[in-house]
Amino acid sequence: MTKVQKNVLGENLENCSNNPLTGWYRDGCCNTDENDHGIHTVCAKVNNEFLEWCKEAGNDLITPHPEFGFPGLKDGDSWCVCAGWYAKAVEAGKGCPIFLKKTHEKTLKLIPIEVLKKFAIDLS
């Protein structure tokens, strides 16, 4: 990618996680493009409550799928989750902590900044 991607605060997008290696491009960053129909743009610090809710709702983020480069997530991992799924989790009262500086600006098309700030763990 040549264009610098921006976060929800309008700043340069920061790296989300290299262990496990996350992102639409598996580059550690919540970058996206028009092919990312899931909009994997929210850098979440997942917890067990969020992971269990996702699995019950039909989005299993716990079970590894090495064929897709997916290690399976555990409590405390940082991961670029789908903005739509994160929005559903918030509605269900299961939103987990997120990093605004690592969350792509495209997320704002689905989730207002005011909502995101309620879950932010990187605002000083």
Score class of each variant (00 low, 15 high):
Cys96Phe: 05
Cys80Met: 02
Pro20Gly: 00
Ile113Asp: 09
Lys74Arg: 13
Asn59Arg: 09
Trp79Glu: 01
Thr63Ser: 12
Gly28Thr: 03
Ile62Cys: 07
Pro20His: 01
Pro97Leu: 05
Arg26Tyr: 09
Cys96Gln: 03
Lys94Ile: 04
Tyr86Ala: 03
Thr63Trp: 05
Trp85Met: 09
Asn31Ile: 03
Ala89Met: 04
Ile39Gln: 08
Ala57Phe: 14
Asn15Glu: 15
Thr41Cys: 07
Lys109Asp: 14
Lys102Glu: 10
Lys109Tyr: 08
Leu21His: 00
Cys80Ile: 01
Ala57Val: 07
Lys94Met: 12
Leu100Ile: 07
Lys88Pro: 01
Glu14Gly: 05
Thr22Gln: 07
Asp122Cys: 12
Lys88Met: 12
Leu110Gln: 15
Gly93His: 02
Glu105Asn: 10
Asn19Asp: 10
Tyr86Asn: 04
Leu51Phe: 07
Phe70Ser: 07
Lys74Pro: 06
Cys80Lys: 01
Trp85Cys: 02
Val46Asn: 01
Gly58Asp: 04
His65Tyr: 09
Lys45Ile: 11
Glu56Gln: 15
Lys102Asp: 04
Phe50Thr: 01
Cys54Thr: 11
Cys96Ser: 10
Leu51Cys: 09
Thr32Tyr: 03
Gly28Leu: 07
Trp24Ser: 05
Lys101Ser: 06
Ile98Asn: 00
Cys43Phe: 02
Asn7Phe: 08
Cys96Asp: 00
Glu91His: 04
Thr63Asp: 09
Lys117Tyr: 12
Glu114Arg: 14
Cys43Lys: 00
Asp77Asn: 12
Ile111Thr: 08
Thr107Phe: 03
Leu100Tyr: 05
Trp24Phe: 12
Pro64Asn: 09
Lys102Cys: 09
Ile98Thr: 01
Glu11Arg: 14
Met1His: 13
Thr107Cys: 06
